[in-house]
Structure formats: structure tokens, C-alpha cells
Nucleic acid binder design. Sequence first.
DNA 1: CATAATATGTAGCTTATGCAACAGAAAAAA
DNA 2: TTTTTTCTGTTGCATAAGCTACATATTATG
Lengths: 210, 210
Amino acid sequence: MSSDFNIENFYYNFSCNCNKVQKKTFSKGQVITTYIQKRNQLCILLKGNADLVRYDLNGNRTIVEHLSKNALFGEVFYKVTINNELLVEAKTKCTVLFYIYDQLKEPCTKKCEFHSTLSEHLPELILNKITELNTRIELLTQRTTRDKLLMYFSLISTRKLSKTFELPLSLTDLADYLSVDRSAMMRELKLLKEDKMVDKIGNRIILLYE
Amino acid sequence: MSSDFNIENFYYNFSCNCNKVQKKTFSKGQVITTYIQKRNQLCILLKGNADLVRYDLNGNRTIVEHLSKNALFGEVFYKVTINNELLVEAKTKCTVLFYIYDQLKEPCTKKCEFHSTLSEHLPELILNKITELNTRIELLTQRTTRDKLLMYFSLISTRKLSKTFELPLSLTDLADYLSVDRSAMMRELKLLKEDKMVDKIGNRIILLYE
DNA sequence: CATAATATGTAGCTTATGCAACAGAAAAAA
DNA sequence: TTTTTTCTGTTGCATAAGCTACATATTATG
């Protein structure tokens, strides 16, 4: 469980020449992939930041996931899907590996190390994924915008081991991520400042409670 | 991916005598497990229905997950956790298998078939889990109670291949599951009926649109 | 069967949130 | 640099949703 496997480390040794994996680079704003069923694509973000976004019928944009280095994504996680369109947008320059999950399970004919190491560590990577999703669910089940904000801040704070941190998302994106209206979120942020719960200097958040 | 592995089928042949797995039975209302970090428990619900619930500081109860036959749950999915208490409550009589995830990865010294089959199919089971979690997230990112209800109904309808179906949850539990106030949900349900979007006879929902 | 406990259905009041709109700041592009 | 675009910060208004409370129906349980 507490293995220190790190995709990044062995990415630099990347030399998988089997045809089961594709490496591609994307520039900011490009669509990395759309979720069209049946391909069972599994992707790994090696470099950069991207968002998995959904546009619903009312035109609302939701950031379903915020993806950063080493994140797993792809259709393989969305077998049963709703009719909304899901797409992954590069927020910065991105490097991405593409697999087909079903092929990944089969042994690699060329016995490339990357391939086998990845297969071996896949359960672990997937468990990390589940943990993230559960955290996301805890965020979204918060009833009020205030509680969502406080929990989000608390999560980042724990991750950074500091009561002061830079927001990894723009405020506009944060609202989409928390699934709330942006102006309502701004208002609540102001109230949190007035209540001396948090402070905010530019992009920097300072937690004042406890 | 599209393998037909079914835990249930081979559960009847269950005869794992290694000490790495425990089978227990619970009666309605009992607490099956609480999520206390560091044990890395992985559980499978073989029979019955249960809820993973969270009680927050305001006394709100949230059904984090509604677990039915073959569901996976346990601490292993909650490595990073928030301070709220998570517990699994039996809604009906339940039969549950308990593992320790780290031990599951190691080969079974007694070579029992159950153990090895489970290990083999774990990635598949876990992927199913992810799909469920993503569906849940789609539900929770719906902005209004109406949209949450409609999406929930649509999901069940798709699953049952019918525009008519019994609700698998009580209305009280459904509200907790959708993370909304019960009375507000009831009001919205009434409006949906008035708008001739859905009909409801007792526990039975009939979708009227399309 | 009687009684308790839980679930359903409804209403009034209050508040949080969504929506629209706009001005200024910051960042990106030309 | 200048221009354009995106992001931030704020407000008024309308309404969805939360809270409380209660009556009835349904389901457990002694």
C-alpha cells in the first residue's frame, strides 16, 4: 500500500516501443480526448495540468476532475455514462500516455519494462484514484458553499502541510469544481474573510481558525 | 473488461480456510465496520443491503454510498480522510467478507481458489467501483434538487431497462443520498408530478417524459 | 393485536444560492 | 507597446432550498 512507486521517475526511462502505448503532447487549450464509449481508453497525464469537464444541457460547465501530474483518466472509468459530453482540456502544455485498458492486461509481446511495471502497479494507481474520487464526493456532499470552501481549503492545507497556500485553480474554475455559482462563491468568500475564518491575498489563502 | 465474473456464483463454493479472510453475518441495524485508518480493510458485501454513512458536525447524515450485493467497501478506499466519522450500517441482514488489502496482494500460502480468483478479478471489481463513484459525482454536481432527482430516476430507469421501477431507497434515504433536505425534495417531487414529468404510486416511479 | 417507531406528505417562514449585469484588474495575444 | 480576452470583485433581485413543525400513513415490535 505504502509503496513508493512513482510514475514520474521511470517516465524518464520511457522507451516502450510496443504499439500498445502512444505518447502525445498537447498545447494549452487543446482537447486531449473526448469520452466516447467502447474504446476503453486509459490515459496517464505525465506532464502539465488538465481538466475533465462536462457541459450539460443548460450550458453549465462542471469541472468533473482537475488532473495534474500522474493523474489517471479515460473512458475506462466511465463504462456507464450519461448523455452529457465529457472532454479533457489541457490547461497547460501536457504530455499524455494513451493505452487501451484491455490490451494492457495482456502480457506485452515485446516485454518492454515500462509496460510490465505499469501493469504491476495499476491496482495501486487505481486505488489512489478511488481515494481522490471519495474525497471529491465528500466535498460535493457538503450542503453549503461555505462548507464546501472550508473543506476544500482544509484539504489543500493538509496536502501542503501549511495553513498558507496558493490556490491551484482560478476562482472561476474553483466554482465549477465545487459545483456552485461563481458570484455566490465570491460572496461567501468575502463573508469568510469578514468572519476572520480565512484571509486571502491575491491567489494565496491563509486559514485563520484553530 | 466485459468479463462475466460474478462473485455471487463462486461464493456458494466458498471454502477459503486461510486466515486472511473472515466471513461474518450482521442483522439489520448493526454496524458492520467503522473506518479507522491504517488497517486497510477491504470488504465485500455478499448478501443484503448496507449504507456507508457519514455524520458531520452539524448532525447531518449523508449516505456516502448505498451498498448492495457484491459491493466493495472499506478503509482501503479512504486513505486520506477527513475528520468525520464514517460507518457502514446494515439495512437488512448482511453477509460480509473481510480482508486486509495488503495481505490480499501476497500469494495465499494455502492456495485456496477463492483467494486467488478474487485477487485476479480485483482490478475489474475496482474499476466497477470507480464507475459507480463517477456516476455519483455526476449526480452530486447537478445544481438543483430537480435535476438531481431526474438524473437519479434516469439512472435507475436505464439500469432496470424500464420507465417504471421501484425505488431501491426510502425517500428519507434518497434525500440523504442526494445530499438535499428531505422536505425540499418532497416539494420538488410534487412539482415534478404537477409538471407531468414523473408519476409516483407508493414506492413506484413512472417516468413520463420523452 | 396494540403500541411504538419510522416514513411520508405538506405548509410557512427564512435564508442561501443562482442569475444577470457591470466595472476594474490581470493576463494573454497581437 | 496596445488591444483583447479572461478573471476578479461586487450588487440587486428572484427563487430554490433549508429549517421547523405537524398530521397522517406505514411499518416494526412487544
